[in-house]
Amino acid sequence: MTVALASGGREFLGWGVDRHMAADLFDALNANTKATGNWGKGKVPKIPGYPRPKAKSTTPSTTPKKPASVAAIYARLSGR
């Protein structure tokens, strides 16, 4: 449960390396089927990917935080 929560939430429960590899294999087989299939009139069917939990965003915010001075930190902690 700890690893699932660290990965992004409860929806990651049970998603170990083996399940990620199985989902990747499923998607690779579908891509191979689309690439090598003999489709009539050139219309390739849309094959959906394996449903996966959504990963949380790890990108930092665009505005960098301004570092606080020692005086500002002291003012916050002393309650002035």
Rank of each mutant, 00 (worst) to 15 (best):
M1K: 07
M1W: 05
M1H: 06
T2I: 15
T2M: 13
V3Q: 14
V3N: 12
A6G: 12
S7P: 01
S7N: 14
G9C: 06
F12I: 05
F12M: 08
L13K: 14
L13P: 02
G14V: 06
G14S: 04
W15Y: 03
W15A: 00
G16Y: 08
V17N: 05
V17D: 01
V17K: 09
D18T: 13
R19G: 03
R19S: 09
M21W: 07
L25I: 06
D27Q: 06
D27W: 01
D27F: 04
N30I: 00
A31F: 02
A31V: 06
T33Y: 06
A35T: 07
T36C: 12
G37I: 06
G37A: 08
N38M: 10
G40I: 15
G40T: 15
K41P: 00
K41E: 13
K41Y: 14
G42C: 03
K43G: 03
K43M: 11
K46P: 00
K46Q: 07
K46R: 12
I47P: 00
G49M: 09
G49I: 06
Y50Q: 10
R52I: 04
R52V: 01
R52C: 01
R52G: 00
K54P: 04
A55G: 02
K56C: 03
T58V: 14
T59M: 10
P60T: 04
P60A: 03
S61A: 15
T62V: 14
T62H: 12
T62F: 11
P64E: 10
K65C: 05
A68F: 13
A68D: 13
S69L: 09
S69Y: 07
I73E: 03
I73F: 03
Y74R: 14
R76P: 02
R76E: 08
L77P: 01
L77Y: 10
S78R: 13
G79I: 02
G79E: 04
